[in-house]
Amino acid sequence: MTTLLLATLFLPLFPSSMVFNWISTRLNFPYARSLLILIWPQIGILIIGQSAQQVLPGFIVWAFASALFYALRLLTVRELGLWASFIASSGLALTWTIAGTASIPDMQLFAFWFSLPAALLALLAAPLAKRFGAAFAGLSGDLTSCVPRLSAILAITILAAIATPPSPGFFSLLGLVNKLDWAIAAGILLIWLLWGWAATKLIQGFLTGEDNKQGATDISRTAVVLYACLMCIFIFSGFIFNGGML
């Protein structure tokens, strides 16, 4: 049991998840923050793999409550880095719901599909903060006319983070809903709904608004191509390893 409780620190469940979010928000280097979001939950899964104790059903309810808690809190978060941490906390908590039935590689893959878009969002906070002083929704607004390439990438990554098809998260969630009891499955769909709501608030905060008077340079075409390639690999990987549902 102690090992499993230790795992909740890495594969975040509230209140242990506060440690993960605290470290994430205190890290000033965007790459470090992204790496944290990618690696931290994988450590948790490895700990679960080492544990002799079977994951108890109570953990599923705890994981669901934790995911719902962060999904609800996400609605009023406007700082992009914090948003990335919270969506990761909410999505990664769901990994616990398959802990009793799925293999360790399947769990790692499931966590990765939710970690990667969140990690990319944490990365995107850096160019925004550099250009506008802070990556804060509603602070500058109208990024579409000011930095169109960056805004397009931001919108696509936010959509991937909330498991919009054809991102792998969508298929993972379908697989999850398929495996769980229908009441928990319905609850997970409610969490999905809250993610969608939070995402539109964030998108509107960044992309829309009155004319942006701040003269900012857009990200380079090379960065866009690199980013697009990464997203394509991410999506096609999801087609191949689609969460074990199909």
Partner: peptide, 22 residues
């Protein structure tokens, strides 16, 4: 993107559709 009303009602549509997706 500059009209708050358009954004507000786009969100309404999206949210209702999301309710229907589930």
């Amino acid at each position: 993107l500059k009209r708050p009303a358009a954004q507000r009602y786009a969100f309404w549509s999206f949210f209702t559709y999301r309710i229907g997706d589930l």
